[in-house]
Amino acid sequence: MSLLQRVLEQFNLDVISVDEVDDSHSSTVYKCHLKKGETIFVKIPYTKLKFERELEAYEILKGKVATPELLDYWTGDEECPGAYLLSELKGQPLTIDVSPTAAYHVGVLHASMHLIHPPINKELKGIQNEFANWSKFIEKQFYSFAVDVKDVLDETLYLKAIDMFERMKGQLPLPDGPGFVHMDFRPANIIVNGDKVSGVIDFESVRFGSTEIDFTKLYRDFLSYDSRFYQSYKEGYKSIRPIIDLEIVLPFYRFIDSFNSIGWCKRRGIEKNAAFLEENILRLKDFILQ
């Protein structure tokens, strides 16, 4: 019996058809069409830690930020780290084919998430609070990926990247938080329905930390394409809470995003991620050689 079949049995689902969802990098996600006409999602994270993070995230965000409804979950066994049964959000992943109004509502949602602080009376097993040692957290992530990046880049470019990281990290302002940071806040994880935002998905990587890290992928894949998006997003965000000076922090985080993404491609398979790898090598060269 396959893992999916075991999970479907755990949830006692009467399924007509199942489609695997693309663009999920830390879990396996299936879109399930049920005999009674509903569509739901089954999600199986790759590790127990990712399962625990997402479970805690749904509890923390409930009633504060729009997400899919957690219909059920299974804590798993020695072969499966756990699984979720999730409702379907109405709409499609965010694209650049939307109006600035949608960007405004993305800003509102993002700021609402950043408003959330670590719970006082609950000890979390999955979601770490990295805020007190934020600089060390960023440094640890960077040098962890550096081991992989070193095997991909030529030595001169690699050493220039290390030097750039050390110079730029000392120029950052004081961290902003602690807030709930998604760590993968990109268009594929933001569901929109017309000009409205239905919610945000995928919480395997969330932390409590500085909000400054959480703008990078949204800027890379959405905000940078249209100045109207960028302006409307910031207006939406500021309607909920003050926004940090993105002109100061974005260059640093865009640089380390390209560097870390090269390492991610090395870990996940260079051939399979060739296009994304080349894209980030070109970005890194632009940052270093400009």
Score class of each variant (00 low, 15 high):
L4G: 09
L4M: 07
Q5S: 13
L8Q: 06
N12G: 10
N12E: 15
L13Y: 03
S17D: 11
D19R: 09
K31F: 14
H33A: 09
H33D: 03
L34E: 02
K35C: 12
G37M: 04
G37N: 07
G37R: 05
E38M: 12
T39L: 12
K43Y: 01
P45Y: 01
T47W: 13
K48R: 15
K48F: 04
F51A: 01
E52H: 10
L55K: 05
Y58L: 08
I60Y: 00
K62P: 06
G63C: 10
A66L: 14
T67H: 05
T67G: 11
L70S: 11
Y73F: 15
W74I: 13
G76Q: 00
D77E: 01
L86I: 14
L86T: 05
L86D: 02
S87H: 07
L89Y: 02
P93G: 01
L94C: 01
V98R: 00
P100Q: 01
V108P: 12
V108E: 14
L109R: 08
M113G: 00
H114I: 07
P119F: 07
L124Y: 01
K125C: 10
Q128N: 12
N129Y: 05
F131P: 06
N133L: 13
F137R: 13
K140V: 12
Q141L: 11
S144V: 06
F145P: 05
A146H: 01
V147P: 09
V147D: 15
D148T: 02
V149Q: 04
D154A: 08
T156C: 06
Y158S: 04
K160Y: 02
A161T: 14
F165H: 07
F165K: 03
F165T: 06
E166S: 11
R167I: 09
G170E: 10
G170D: 12
G170P: 08
L174F: 14
V181R: 10
D184G: 11
R186H: 12
P187T: 07
A188V: 00
A188E: 14
A188S: 15
N189G: 09
V192H: 00
V192R: 03
K196D: 08
V197D: 06
S198K: 01
G199D: 00
V200L: 08
I201G: 10
F203N: 00
V206W: 09
V206P: 10
G209W: 06
G209C: 02
S210G: 11
T211I: 11
T211W: 10
I213R: 05
F215E: 07
T216S: 15
L218Y: 06
D221Q: 10
F222A: 04
L223A: 02
Y225V: 11
S227Q: 14
Y230M: 04
Q231Y: 07
S232D: 00
S232Y: 05
G236L: 05
K238F: 10
K238Q: 14
S239M: 11
S239P: 09
I244R: 00
L246M: 09
E247Q: 11
V249D: 02
L250Q: 04
F259N: 08
N260K: 10
N260F: 04
N260T: 03
W264I: 06
R267M: 08
I270A: 00
I270F: 10
I270S: 05
E271L: 14
E271Y: 15
A274D: 10
A274Y: 15
A275D: 15
F276V: 15
L277A: 09
E279H: 13
E279Q: 13
E279M: 12
I281K: 15
R283A: 10
F287E: 03
